[in-house]
Each structure stands twice: as structure tokens, then as C-alpha cells.
Design a protein around this nucleic acid. Sequence first.
DNA 1: CAGTGTAATGTTATACTATATCATTAGTTT
DNA 2: AAACTAATGATATAGTATAACATTACACTG
Lengths: 170, 170
Amino acid sequence: MNTMDARDFIQIAKNICEKTGSRLTETRQHMLEVLFTVETPKSAYELTDDYNRLVNSPIMAMSVYRILNFLASIRLVHHLHSINKYIICKHPIGRSEDQVPLFLICTSCQQIEEVAIAADLIYALSDHAESRGFISAGSQIELNSLCKKCQSNIHQHSPGDFNGQNPTNK
Amino acid sequence: MNTMDARDFIQIAKNICEKTGSRLTETRQHMLEVLFTVETPKSAYELTDDYNRLVNSPIMAMSVYRILNFLASIRLVHHLHSINKYIICKHPIGRSEDQVPLFLICTSCQQIEEVAIAADLIYALSDHAESRGFISAGSQIELNSLCKKCQSNIHQHSPGDFNGQNPTNK
DNA sequence: CAGTGTAATGTTATACTATATCATTAGTTT
DNA sequence: AAACTAATGATATAGTATAACATTACACTG
Ligand SMILES: [Zn+2]
Ligand SMILES: [Zn+2]
Ligand SMILES: [Zn+2]
Ligand SMILES: [Zn+2]
């Protein structure tokens, strides 16, 4: 159980901004609140709608992209490439540099679990690779999964990408 | 050194099609040839251009998407989500079901290395996850990396997504 | 071989995602 | 106050992907 509050995110962001000379504007704060509220991963345009539903002052998608980029650059937001959606970081504090985020994405209900794993584990993965001259550089990992709830409802297989489409994915 | 030929891909595809009742049409063959020729990861629209440059009978993007979907469904093509491009499979033969592809993507020159890793390694990664009720389901893994060549030219850091953009990425 | 059914593609339109560019505003610094 | 810079507003456009329906090509039946 996470006892974090939207205000906690805002405070964290404020601290980061102070260090870097950037500013935590009202729009950025509001976006953090929206992201915290919606919980599930959303596209930039969905977040634009959410923002305009939840916040009084309207925003346009262009600004949403800029703000998502900013929040991702300070690692309070993650972009999940495999589903092309954005989500607030589940572990904004206590991260060490030698960890990378691992996302478990329920292919049925899109619930996300974010856990931190040792970067070493990644290097271990790419051991073959290093022998071929590649070195790993700060990735996140996204795994197609099934959450507990959806494991019970075992009607459909849901492969990751092509063919068997994800039924819950509009 | 890979001694594979475009014809090998076509033969593999033909075999799969026979088993599944689908057909390896001329267009699909041509697309395999194009993918084999270009080597590097390309967007669907880039592949459309490549196809029309290399093949005499023109094709439209809609068809390219359909064919990429088909070829991905029989695992002769991979969709790299993190860069949103498609690439021909480097290991179309000798794959076992308990392996998943790991892609090392050079963030500087986009050269790709594909290696197969034991799915067990993935399960190990998501061990935390399983304790939370998630089970892993057939993912591929994409890692930002630096190839040997680009390690020499160490001018720029190239983070994965936001902020420091990838300079070679039009 | 004609008739029928299905897989695949052609064609057009449209939805969705993301960035470029320039103008304007709002803080910060001197 | 003036100058500078970060951030946003506003508009346009690029880039990615799918929907929907028509047509064609192939396999299968009789
Ligand atoms: Zn995180
Ligand atoms: Zn679920
Ligand atoms: Zn492969
Ligand atoms: Zn490289």
C-alpha cells in the first residue's frame, strides 16, 4: 500500500527543479495531480482530456507533450513504449542510480506494476551482447504480463503485439 | 557471420504458411526481400518507400502494415517499440519456445543485435512481480546500448527517450 | 470446369500520435 | 525598469496506424 499523495510528487518535483534551475509551474503541478489521479497508463491525448476535465484552465496537446517530456526527464513520469502510454512513477523516491525500472503490464486490463531491479541484472542479460561489443545504457524493461485478477478470467490468450489483439485496448 | 539468404526466409515462410493455411503471396515475398536487403530497422512508411524503390509493382502503406503484421505473427519480423521501427528476425530458425528475443539497440547508429535468451531469465526478472500476482507472458526485451563502433566516438551521451535526443534519429 | 467461399490486397478515408515554428507570457537577474 | 531566459500559447504540419468496403486471387466443392 502506497501512502503517497499528489502533494508528495509536487514536493519532489519542486526539489528537483530547485537543483536544476527549472521551475515547477502551475501547469506542471496540475499535470502531476492528473497523472496521480488517473493511475492507469494513458496516451498524451487522453491525458489532455483528463486534464481538461479535472483542471479549470484548459490545456492543449502540444503543452501536454512538453510537460510529459519534462516530467519524464526528471523521472516522475514514464513512457511505456510497448503500449505507447504515459504513467506516473510509482517509486519517485529512494531510487539509486544502479537500478532501472521494470514494468509489468497486464495485457488484459492494463494495470501496471513498477518494480526497481538492479541494473546488474540487465547487464547479465546482455552478457552475450557485451561479447559482441555492445554495452547497455540505461533502459527500462517492459514485460507483457497477466495480473492476478485477469489470470482468473482465463478466456483469451493475449499476445503482445500483433495477431491476437488485446480486447481491452480500444 | 550469417550466411542466410532472402530465399531462406521465403522458404521458412512458405513452410509456416503450409502448416497454417495462410499463403506466402508475391507481395509478402517481396517484403521479405526488402526487409532482408535494408537490414536496419525502418518505419512502416520508410519500408513502403524502400519497397517501391526495390520492387516493380507499387504498394501502399496500408498493405505494408498488413504484411508487417502477418510477418510478425509468424515471427519473421519484429516490431521494436522503443524506436517504433520494424526489422527482420535475425534468428528465424532454431528458436525454441522457451526463448525470447533480446534486442540491443545502438542509440547512436541504430544498429541492432538480436540474441535469444532463456525465458527463465525473464521470469527471474519478474520474480518480485510474481509475488505480487503477475505472471510474465512472452515479451521481447529492448535495451538501449552502444555498439562497439559508437563506443569509440564518445562525444555524446544518448539517453533512451526524452531530454538528450538521439542525434542520428532524423 | 463452373460455382462458392475465404484469404489477401486495393482503395479511400480518417483517426491517432508527435513535433516544428513563431508569438507571447512570466519569472529572474542586473 | 531593462534584459534575459524558461515556459506556454497557438497554429500548422508531419508521421503512424486503422477502419471500412470493394475487388481480386486462390482453394475447394460438386
Ligand atoms: Zn519510476
Ligand atoms: Zn489485469
Ligand atoms: Zn527474431
Ligand atoms: Zn552504433
